[in-house]
């Protein structure tokens, strides 16, 4: 669908990766004493839309910056659209668009001028598409960017990232600061783009949004992939989550210790709240076990109504929305 631009100066080596795909092998990055990425392997298939979820400092932005050549990894290989990333990655950046998560703007520039500036190195058609998209998003392009709200600035960057016809888009926290209606518009644009065969890797704190848009989710924490699963599988996990709230910590501990191992996959406790991922969707055996326990009954039980955000908070102690 998209014609990739060739950039022999960056790399002419034929890679193992497919056009439109992203492949990462043993990627490592440290900043001083802090390890941002542990040896990390990742494959994003052509035409798929993959979400990166994780708390602040989990390595999402570092990974994305490595993919576009803005941060040099200590070790590892990156292949983007069949091209191996070397040097400063200009060849790779011609084959993808990138919207950074943390960004400033030139406040003195007008919206249209800034959009064109963001689209430097792209063709005229990309500038026209960017302008159309920005107008569809309701951005006043004649106004100075300094008068834009935070959400409007993000939309400007989003319009610039969606405008060029490239096989891959890497979008870091693209809906951060947007109101719910704008967020919906953005997800619709992403969905339409995916339908046209573009590969999208996006990061977000918004579990619900990732759940809605992405077909696959990678959960990062402290530079490691904690989980790499399809959206459907993660929703299935969330649906098997049982939360039992006790009045004391001791009760919660006793309850968790007493659980038969065949009844659950993961168990976790936060003070006097127990979270159990059941082995299947039938809570009756574990509820029967609960009934047999001596002592007072739990204060509250919750099953089947867990959101993705709850899942990660409950299992990994990570907050999201």
């Amino acid at each position: 669908m998209h014609a990739p631009t060739t950039e022999p100066s960056t790399s002419s080596a034929a890679g193992p990766a497919l056009p439109g795909s992203i492949q990462v092998r043993h990627l490592e990055k440290t900043f001083g004493d802090a390890r941002a990425l542990w040896p990390l392997d990742l494959t994003v298939d052509p035409g798929s839309i993959v979400g990166l979820i994780g708390p602040n400092g989990s390595g999402k932005s570092t990974l994305m910056r490595c993919l576009v050549g803005l941060t040099r990894p200590d070790r590892g290989e990156i292949w983007v659209d069949g091209l191996r990333l070397t040097g400063d990655g200009v060849g790779v950046r011609k084959r993808l668009t990138y919207a950074p998560g943390e960004m400033g703007v030139y406040r003195e520039m007008r919206g249209r001028e800034h959009l064109h500036w963001l689209l430097r190195g792209r063709d005229r058609a990309a500038r026209e598409r960017g302008q159309r998209l920005a107008q569809d998003l309701g951005l006043p392009l004649q106004r100075r960017v300094g008068t834009y709200s935070h959400g409007m600035k993000r939309q400007l960057v989003f319009a610039a990232a969606m405008a060029p016809r490239v096989p891959i888009r890497i979008l870091d926290e693209i809906t951060e600061g947007l109101d719910p209606s704008r967020r919906t518009e953005v997800t619709e644009v992403l969905e339409a783009d995916r339908q046209s065969g573009t590969t999208i890797l996006l990061s977000s704190h918004h579990f619900g949004e990732v759940d809605r848009v992405c077909e696959r989710i990678l959960f990062l924490q402290a530079g490691k992939v904690l989980e790499d699963a399809s959206s459907a599988r993660i929703r299935d996990r969330a649906a098997r989550l049982l939360r039992v709230v006790w009045s004391t910590e001791a009760e919660a501990m006793t309850y968790l210790d007493s659980l038969p191992s065949e009844a659950y996959l993961v168990k976790h406790r936060r003070v006097h709240e127990c979270v159990i991922e059941l082995a299947d969707h039938d809570p009756r055996p574990i509820l029967a076990h609960l009934k047999q326990l001596p002592g007072p009954p739990p204060l509250r039980l919750q099953f089947g109504s867990t959101t993705l955000a709850d899942l990660y908070r409950d299992l990994y102690g990570v907050e999201g929305t």
Partner: peptide, 12 residues
């Protein structure tokens, strides 16, 4: 804060 967006374009 414009450093990243300055570098992110397909320009060496």
């Amino acid at each position: 804060g414009t450093f990243e967006v300055w570098l992110a374009r397909p320009v060496s």
